[in-house]
């Protein structure tokens, strides 16, 4: 029997596998990780930190939605209630996107103080579970 040899091979195999996985996960996080920030937090940032790629959550300011002249880019503002940031986005606009809805945009702040987004996620309206006033 290969009783003596087997554990060594399997342990070596497991080690290689775990290392490869760790490398993959590390690389994936490097590529995909984005911080969640609120409008206030992003406004408060300065320097390099201000231009990092982030996920910005907030509410779409009513009346702020407009398409630019070529209709390829959407402009709107996202607010946390006190402060607002103008957002420019080109890409597929979710059907449920509209003024007053909660959205998450992924992208980075430009030096001019506006935010370019490459991803736009809109939260489903509360229609599914109506806010229950009695509860």
């Amino acid at each position: 029997m290969t009783f003596r040899r087997r554990p060594v091979i399997f342990i070596a195999g497991a080690a290689v596998f775990v290392l490869a996985l760790a490398y993959l996960v590390y690389g994936g996080i490097q590529q995909g990780a984005t911080y969640w920030v609120t409008v206030g937090e992003l406004r408060g940032r300065t320097g390099v930190a201000a231009q990092a790629r982030v996920r910005l959550g907030g509410t779409v300011v009513p009346g702020s939605i407009a398409w630019d002249a070529s209709h390829e880019r959407l402009r709107f503002a996202v607010t946390d209630g006190t402060d607002a940031i103008p957002v420019r986005y080109s890409g597929v606009v979710p059907d449920i996107f509209s003024a007053g809805r909660q959205v998450v945009v992924e992208g980075a702040l430009l030096p001019d103080g506006s935010f370019t987004a490459t991803t736009l996620l809109a939260k489903c309206p509360t229609k599914y579970a109506p806010a229950d006033p009695q509860r």
Partner: peptide, 13 residues
């Protein structure tokens, strides 16, 4: 800090 990993992470791994 809340950090999100999006589709790039999943595709990569």
């Amino acid at each position: 800090r809340r950090v999100n990993v999006g589709p790039p992470f999943f595709d990569h791994v």
